[in-house]
Structures are given as structure tokens and as C-alpha cells.
Design a protein around this nucleic acid. Structure first.
Length: 196
DNA sequence: TGAATGATGCGCT
DNA sequence: GCGCATCATTCAT
């Protein structure tokens, strides 16, 4: 059972401007009720992808089969395959019809580290969720988790009413276009951030 | 410690 | 065909 100060984030959290939501996600907890048990982690790094005018956003070409959940209700998961072998997990933001999302890039493991280790045997604890592909592999997330409602009980975020971390920002990682925006947000005190 | 590179599948032009 | 919101390995300093 969740403790009283562990509050699941409601749809109203996601249904806002992405540049408000993204930095607030750092320091929140992600919970996944997997077939192997309840996994959780503290988010330390995210990136915002905002609308058709953001050239790095998957919605830049307009609506397609792949990006369609970004156009739907906020508070859903957007999971896609990248480089033929890694999955990336995003959280859909803004109002329905406006395509935007926050990419989860890194986290610190909390519950069920042994399950994560089974999925990523060579990783040290502080690096096992350090990178968007590594996070999904260690958590056991893949394309079947695309479009999940984050107000449900399988996959969701929690506010644990801790002291908010100091947030740093930078250019987004691994993109060719849209590098003028500093839409990556991370906890500067965490050793689980993917890049310095 | 850092740069280069191969693995690998799919959406889009 | 091309180009990825990546990662692990290899080889160089």
C-alpha cells in the first residue's frame, strides 16, 4: 500500500505547458507494476519535445501512425523503438490535439533492483537506469507499453513530498535539429545522470 | 578518458 | 534507401 505522503500524479499534472511539467518531473518517482513485481525509481533526467514546430519532436512531420498517442490525452505513455534495438519511454503532456511529451532519460533505482539487474546484468547500481534505452531495458518496458494511461495502476508517477532537487538544464542529447533549445532538465547532484 | 564504430528495425520520403 | 530522442565495445592517447 502506498504511504499517505506518496501521491500518484493526476492527469492535471500532465495537462499543462511541457516546460512547466518537465522540470517538475525531476525528483518524482516512477512506479511500474511489472510481472516480476513492483519496480520503482527516482527520476533524475528528462527532456521536453514540444509540438510540430520543434524539429526534434517526433510530431514535427504532423500526425502519423507512430506518433499518434502524442496527439491524444495527456497522462499517457509514448514508447517507441530507436536504432532498431532500444525503447524510449515518454509521458504525453499538454491538451489533446497538441503533440508534446517528456522523455525519461535517467533515474536512480529504488525498489526491486534485483529485477533490473536480471534485465541488465553488467550495470553498476547507479548506472543501471542511466540513459533512455537502459532505463527501458532494465525496467522491462517495450512497445507493448505504448499508450498506457498513467492514471491507472500499472505505470504511474508519484510525488513523495521530498525537498525539491536543484535543477540544471542544457541542450538535448543525441539530436541533430532543435539544438538551440535547452530543454533537458536534470538533478545536478545525482550520479545517475546520463551525461555531464 | 575520449573518439570511432557496429548492431539492428522501422517509419518516412 | 536514409536516418534516427542509443549503447557497448574497441582502439587510441
Amino acid at each position: 500500500m502506498a504511504r499517505r505522503n506518496h501521491r500518484k500524479l493526476a492527469r492535471s499534472f500532465y495537462s499543462r505547458a511541457t516546460l512547466e511539467v518537465a522540470p517538475e518531473m525531476v525528483g518524482k518517482y516512477i512506479i511500474y507494476h511489472s510481472p516480476a513485481g513492483r519496480l520503482s525509481a527516482r527520476i533524475v533526467e528528462v527532456e521536453a519535445y514540444i509540438g510540430q514546430d520543434d524539429p526534434a519532436c517526433h510530431a514535427a512531420p504532423g500526425p502519423t501512425k507512430r506518433n499518434r498517442v502524442m496527439y491524444g490525452q495527456p497522462g499517457h505513455s509514448y514508447v517507441y523503438l530507436i536504432y532498431g534495438m532500444y525503447y524510449c519511454l515518454n509521458f504525453v503532456t499538454e491538451k489533446p490535439g497538441f503533440p508534446a511529451a517528456v522523455l525519461l532519460r535517467a533515474a536512480e533505482p529504488c525498489e526491486r533492483l534485483e529485477v533490473m539487474r536480471r534485465n541488465s546484468p553488467r550495470q553498476k547500481e547507479e548506472k543501471i537506469l542511466s540513459g533512455p534505452g537502459k532505463f527501458c531495458r532494465s525496467f522491462g518496458l517495450s512497445g507493448v507499453h505504448n499508450g498506457l494511461d498513467l492514471t491507472g495502476s500499472t505505470l504511474f508517477l508519484e510525488d513523495r513530498a521530498e525537498v525539491a532537487p536543484v535543477i540544471a538544464s542544457s541542450q538535448r542529447v543525441g539530436i541533430r535539429k532543435g539544438t538551440d533549445h535547452h530543454w533537458r532538465f536534470y538533478d545536478d547532484n545525482s550520479s545517475s545522470v546520463s551525461r555531464r
